[in-house]
Amino acid sequence: MKKYLLMLTAVLSLSGCGDNTSIVNSWRDPDVTVAQEQFKKVLVVALVKDEASRRITENRIASTNPVFKTSYQYLNATSELTKEQKLKILQDENFDGVVTMRLVSKEKEVNYVPGTYTGMYYGGFDGMYTGVYGYGFGNWYGMYSPNFYDPGYYQETTSYMVETNIFSLKQNKLIWTGTTESQYATDLGQTIDAIMQAVVKEMRKDGSLPPK
């Protein structure tokens, strides 16, 4: 096993709704890669107002690799700590990296899904029943089938735009950022899995992480 821990590698094995999550855009520092940083202790920060969602998100990421630590374990009194105090805690606890995740936007879109027509009408040619072998009662009966026509309907889709940032505390700067879009999200945990899979895939693509 390599001496350094490659950021986010473990989440590649996670299952989830990855097909509904994709990278919208990303950027990496051209002078440094995540692999080069050799992170050993990384703070995970979910920038959300709801405490339950924050803990679910941070716990989900932290469960993928011992290198990740949840922010609520160290910075739970966020409203009372100054920026300098927070940085002092991270320094004292020997953190060398930070991953932040925040919801950029939540948009709803309503689309019409057209109905389907079975095509079974009398069973003859040109819509007329002719009694020709193979076009008898079985096809004619289709016109009375409840599956004859599946009516259209309106479908509401919610898209979540989430920004993921990776900071190097050693260099005191942002080294990678990416925005993902997730649709049909019904479970927060699985959505987080899918976001991290998309992030890892993009980081392998841009060279931040070595190819699989």
Rank of each mutant, 00 (worst) to 15 (best):
T33K: 02
N111C: 14
E58P: 11
T177D: 00
R60E: 13
L6S: 15
G178W: 09
S15I: 13
Y184C: 06
G178L: 13
L5D: 15
Y72N: 02
P114T: 12
D19M: 04
N94S: 13
V162S: 03
S145W: 01
N147H: 05
E163P: 05
D187Q: 09
P211K: 11
N147I: 06
Y4A: 08
M7K: 11
L174S: 08
F95D: 03
T100A: 04
G142L: 04
V132L: 11
K49Y: 15
T21F: 09
K201A: 10
T64E: 12
C17E: 14
S168Y: 04
N165W: 10
W176Y: 08
D96G: 01
V44H: 10
N94R: 12
L169I: 14
Y154G: 05
S15V: 14
L43A: 13
L87W: 07
K212S: 15
K173L: 06
N20Q: 15
V199Q: 08
T177S: 04
S182H: 05
T100S: 05
T179L: 06
D206R: 03
N139T: 00
V48C: 13
Q197W: 10
Q171W: 12
S105F: 01
L14N: 11
Y117I: 02
G138P: 14
R54N: 09
Y144N: 00
Y121M: 15
Y154D: 05
Q38M: 12
S182L: 07
Y135F: 00
L47I: 13
L81K: 03
L103Y: 02
L12V: 13
G178E: 10
I23W: 07
G134V: 12
V110R: 13
T78I: 11
P211D: 06
T191N: 02
F68L: 08
D50K: 12
Y72S: 01
M1K: 10
G207V: 00
G178R: 12
A198F: 07
G207Y: 02
S168I: 08
V45I: 14
Y112L: 01
M161A: 15
K86L: 05
Q38H: 13
Y160L: 12
E202I: 00
F39D: 02
S15F: 07
A62C: 15
W140E: 14
I195N: 01
T130A: 05
G115I: 01
M143S: 09
I166K: 14
D92T: 06
T57A: 15
S79H: 06
Y133Q: 07
S145V: 01
N139K: 06
D29A: 03
V32L: 07
A35F: 04
E156Q: 13
D206A: 02
L47H: 12
K40P: 00
V199P: 03
K106R: 08
G178V: 12
E202V: 00
V132K: 08
I175E: 02
K170M: 05
S26F: 04
T191R: 03
Y74E: 10
L6F: 14
Q155A: 08
A62P: 13
M161D: 14
